[in-house]
Amino acid sequence: KTVKFDGLQFDFDNPEKALKFALEVAKQKGAEVHIHGDEIKIE
C-alpha cells in the first residue's frame, strides 16, 4: 500500500501498518483518510 500526503509518498509492504500510519498522520493533521485500491490519501 502507498500512503500519500503533502506531496510525499510512503510505501508499505504491510497494509495494516500503512493504514495505522495514515490514521495517525490524519489525526495529527486534522485530515481525513481516503482509500483508493492500493493507495491511501490523507486530505
Rank of each mutant, 00 (worst) to 15 (best):
K1L: 13
K1N: 08
K1E: 01
K1G: 06
K1I: 15
K1M: 15
T2Y: 09
T2R: 09
T2G: 03
T2K: 06
T2Q: 06
T2E: 02
T2N: 04
V3F: 06
V3N: 01
V3Y: 05
V3I: 04
V3A: 03
K4R: 11
K4A: 07
K4Q: 06
K4N: 06
K4H: 11
K4F: 14
K4S: 10
K4G: 04
F5Q: 03
F5V: 08
F5I: 07
F5T: 00
F5P: 01
F5M: 05
F5K: 00
D6K: 09
D6C: 15
D6I: 05
D6P: 02
D6W: 13
G7V: 04
G7W: 06
G7K: 05
G7T: 05
G7N: 07
G7D: 05
G7Y: 05
L8T: 05
L8E: 05
L8I: 07
L8G: 02
Q9N: 07
Q9D: 04
Q9S: 13
F10L: 05
F10H: 00
F10Y: 10
F10W: 13
D11V: 14
D11R: 13
D11Y: 15
F12M: 03
F12R: 02
F12T: 02
D13Y: 05
D13L: 08
N14H: 06
N14L: 05
N14K: 04
N14D: 14
P15F: 15
P15S: 11
P15Y: 14
P15C: 15
P15G: 10
E16Q: 10
E16F: 11
E16T: 08
K17P: 01
K17H: 12
K17I: 12
A18L: 03
A18K: 01
A18Y: 05
A18I: 01
A18S: 01
A18H: 00
A18N: 00
A18Q: 00
A18W: 10
A18R: 00
A18T: 00
L19K: 03
L19G: 00
L19V: 00
L19R: 05
K20F: 08
K20S: 09
K20P: 00
K20Q: 12
K20L: 12
K20G: 04
K20M: 12
F21I: 04
F21V: 04
F21T: 03
F21A: 04
A22N: 00
A22T: 01
A22P: 02
L23H: 08
L23Q: 09
L23S: 05
L23A: 07
L23K: 07
L23D: 04
E24H: 07
E24K: 09
E24Q: 10
E24N: 05
E24P: 00
E24W: 14
E24S: 09
V25D: 03
V25R: 00
V25S: 01
V25H: 01
V25I: 13
V25K: 00
V25Y: 10
A26G: 01
A26S: 03
A26H: 00
A26W: 03
A26V: 01
A26D: 02
A26K: 01
A26C: 14
K27F: 11
K27M: 12
K27W: 09
K27G: 08
K27R: 12
Q28Y: 11
Q28A: 12
Q28K: 11
Q28F: 10
Q28H: 09
K29L: 14
K29V: 14
G30E: 05
G30V: 05
G30T: 03
G30M: 06
A31E: 04
A31N: 03
A31V: 08
E32S: 13
E32Q: 14
V33Y: 07
V33M: 07
V33K: 02
V33P: 02
H34G: 05
H34N: 06
H34C: 15
H34K: 11
I35F: 10
I35D: 04
I35S: 04
I35Q: 05
I35A: 04
I35R: 03
H36E: 12
H36I: 12
H36T: 10
H36W: 10
H36P: 03
H36N: 11
G37S: 05
G37I: 07
G37V: 06
D38K: 09
D38I: 08
D38W: 11
E39C: 15
E39V: 14
I40E: 00
I40C: 10
I40Y: 09
I40K: 02
K41W: 15
K41V: 14
K41L: 15
K41S: 13
K41Y: 15
I42S: 03
I42M: 03
I42H: 04
I42P: 02
I42G: 03
E43G: 12
E43T: 12
E43M: 13
